[in-house]
Every structure is written in structure tokens, then in C-alpha cells.
Write a protein that binds this DNA or RNA. Sequence first.
DNA 1: CTGCAGTAGTTGCACGCGCAACGTTCTAGA
DNA 2: TCTAGAACGTTGCGCGTGCAACTACTGCAG
Lengths: 148, 148
Amino acid sequence: MGIADDAVEIRARGWRTLAALHGLIETDLERALQKEHQLSVVEFTVLDALSRQDGWHMRMQQLARAAALSSSATTRLVTRLEDRGLLTRILCADDRRGIYTELTPAGRTLLKKARPTHDRALEDALTRAEDIPEIAPLAAALHTPVAV
Amino acid sequence: MGIADDAVEIRARGWRTLAALHGLIETDLERALQKEHQLSVVEFTVLDALSRQDGWHMRMQQLARAAALSSSATTRLVTRLEDRGLLTRILCADDRRGIYTELTPAGRTLLKKARPTHDRALEDALTRAEDIPEIAPLAAALHTPVAV
DNA sequence: CTGCAGTAGTTGCACGCGCAACGTTCTAGA
DNA sequence: TCTAGAACGTTGCGCGTGCAACTACTGCAG
């Protein structure tokens, strides 16, 4: 039974490492993006996801999955960004239940300005993480991924 | 400049992968622990961290770091668990600013019952994650870590 | 064409979170 | 000794989140 127990313990340890690194990075990104562009991490994630679908719209559900959010949270998030003029809702004609979202020029502009902030903060966070023994290996793997 | 840009993009992709996997696992754990033991993931994390310090107390700050939480959130989390009788606050004599926390027998019992739920949910989540192309490699790495 | 299960998105609600301000206690310098 | 500054934990506050219930629409079975 030792082997099975080991596997369980290895997974648990891996999960703790993952969670720790995630928390560290998210906190840093949050502070940097909030301070310089009044954006939260999820907000940036959504804008970024939309920009990477360039030319194509995204439905609320896809957005929800991309941001790892519930649909209700997604609704309010989109509303928030729409109120700031960063994206627009577009009713889709063929399926009148569905709603597309699309970046506005203002959204594109803000994203363009925010991306350097994001990248720098990410870099810094990873560097910082490499000084913490328990999460250093994973952080290093993110810097130069072996398989992605 | 292509090389630097690549590095940035690789990091960003790695972070998205990490965040996606983290979200997936956390959601699953949350549901399982909540349903079967009325515990949130952070609550479990705290109990688990305390149990792994067996025999030793933990200060609020250490707890905060272990759970990737702010100190205010930690205060309320500990209060919540204390009200449920799962742990106790202990004033420490040598530094009267500090407060130790310790598992109660009830806390130990609950943790013992909750751990299998946690481990099973984690296993399931990882298995599920291996079917999602973009996060499969990382999920597989957690199953059998190369370097941890 | 009618009814009904399933899907998309929105809203009410309770709750946990981070930030900032605060009281208390320790520590170091004059 | 006394005082300024830092560290620890707590509390007020606003806000974003998930869940459950709801409306609107689709598509399939009869």
C-alpha cells in the first residue's frame, strides 16, 4: 500500500506547490495591473483572450472558461468592462440566446499598454519565486517549459 | 528581439496553463469538500498545514503564508474554524503580540475524514485535466513530478 | 404544430476577500 | 529611561464571487 500512498502524497505536494506559486503570481499581477491600469487579473485575462481571438467574437461561455469563472461572474465582468467602453456586447443573429463580445479600439489600446506591465510583473514574480525553495522547481519550469 | 519576445510569450502561456489547471482543481476540490464536510479549500489547507506541523503551533502569519491569504482573511478564517471547535487560539507567553493556533481533537478527526475526499477529488481533477490538451502536460507532470 | 427538455445569459442573495486604519506589544537609539 | 518605529493581529468597509432561481430561446419527439 506504500506505493499508492506515495502517489497520493506526491500529488498533494504538487498541488500545494501549484497553489502556492499561483497565489504568489496572482497577487503580484493584481497589484501591478491594478496600480498602473486599474485592471484586475481576470479583467486582463478576458481582454487578452479576446485579443487572441482576433477578428473573431467570443461567446460568454467561452469567456467564462477562459477566465475560469462562473457564468454569473462573467456576466458582471463583461458588464463592468462594457461600462468602461473596453468591449461591446453583440447579439448573434443565428442563435438569439447567444451573445458575442468584442474588443473596442479603446480596449485594444488599454490592453496594448497593460501587456508590458503584465509581462514584467510575471517575470518579476517568477524570479522571486525561484528564491523560495519549495516552489522554485515549478517556477523554473515555467521560465523554460520542457513540454508545452 | 525575437528571442526575448519568445521568452515572454512562453512565460505568458505557462501562466495561463497554470491558472487554468489551478482553477479546475480548486473548483473540484471546493465542491467535494464543501459537499461532504462543509469545508472550503482554504479551510482544509489550514487544517492540513496545522496537522503537518504536528506537535508544533503555528502563528497567524505563517498560516497566512501557507494559505496564500491576507492577514485579515486569516483572522476571520481562524475565527470561523475556532467557532466550529476545530482549532484553538493560544496566546504565546514570550511575545504577547503573537497568537498560536492548534488543532483540537475534533479538528484532527474532521481532517482525517476529509483527507480521503480531498485526495480522491484531486486525483479525479488531474485525470480530467489530462483530457484537456492545453493543460494536459502540466497535469501529467503533477501526477508524476520530474523535479519536486 | 405543440410541448418539453436542454442551453445561454441574467439577477437576488449571502459570503469571503483585500485594503486601510487601528490598538497593542516589542525593539532600538538617544 | 523614554520615545520613535516596526511588527502582530483585529475590525470597518466596499467589492467580486458562486449558487440557485429565473427568463428567453432552441431543437427534438410526438
